[in-house]
Design a protein around this nucleic acid. Sequence first.
DNA 1: ATTATATAGTTCGAAATCGAATTAATGGAG
DNA 2: CTCCATTAATTCGATTTCGAACTATATAAT
Lengths: 166, 166
Amino acid sequence: MSEDKSVESEAALFFAFFTEVGILAQLSRALLESRLPDGVSVAHYSVLNHLVRVCDGQTPLTLARAFQVPKNSMTHTLSGLEARGLIAMHVHPDDGRSKQVWITQDGRDFQAAAVGLLKEDVARLIPKLDTEQLEELTTALGGIRKVLDDDRSVAQSHAGPETKTP
Amino acid sequence: MSEDKSVESEAALFFAFFTEVGILAQLSRALLESRLPDGVSVAHYSVLNHLVRVCDGQTPLTLARAFQVPKNSMTHTLSGLEARGLIAMHVHPDDGRSKQVWITQDGRDFQAAAVGLLKEDVARLIPKLDTEQLEELTTALGGIRKVLDDDRSVAQSHAGPETKTP
DNA sequence: ATTATATAGTTCGAAATCGAATTAATGGAG
DNA sequence: CTCCATTAATTCGATTTCGAACTATATAAT
């Protein structure tokens, strides 16, 4: 094998990798979506999950950065959750411009129930997957994520200073 | 290490993996989107790319399946491309219900130019990535994709018979 | 031939997403 | 204290996405 691979083949590999990532993301997203009750989107579920598993009391902007979405998208998602009584938002005690997002008991109950919705799917799929490989892949993907994430500060002419990862 | 991992930790790994996949997909998608000219979406670009790199003359439904999107979404994407003169659609000679999608010379020119839009990004990122690892990862992800894809036929109560992968 | 069923594509309405402009609050410079 | 630049969140408008209903062709059964 030639050590000095052509730029083209490297680029092709680059695209193939991200194509595969994109397809996998779409497949898993579609599966999750099909399991969620009507009116609750993947975005809703993800935020609720984050509030339970990481922590609540964060600001909308912090959440937007954590999920790599524009802050107005997060506003929309949060207002949906608030309308359903799954979260509560209060003015931030230290900064009148900002808010704190707290999960409610209903929100916790919902999240706990939602985890079970995928139980069957996970049980069916796990035996078909190599758990050890999955672990290695997760680590490796995390590394690539970091590379891309760090690069975002560098990427020229990408105007928007908003939406940066923590 | 215990051979008999708990279901919970396996499920957690499962979620961690797909979370990582989702974040990577969003990052790469956002980068691509920021490079495309105004009015051309990632969906437009992907279809155009497919027509050049795989083949044109396929039907909208075939394309929808290839991209894992509902057929009406593909209709929308294709009409955008047609309005820009990047593709042409004709009634299928063998089936009056169906159509054939052909890329135009303008479409080919556009696709050729678009590849260059990401050249800088690829050149900047490739040195930060392990090419060999990227290759292994792509293969491994493809395997997992296949597992998920095959599983879709099994996944109970997933009503929609439409949108199946070729 | 006629009818029923299935398939390809479109239309329609609802929801999600996001860039840009807007409003409100903060914090610093003079 | 006042002004001004900055930051957090929202609102607005345009686009994308998708499920469900619809139209038209095609295929099979009788």
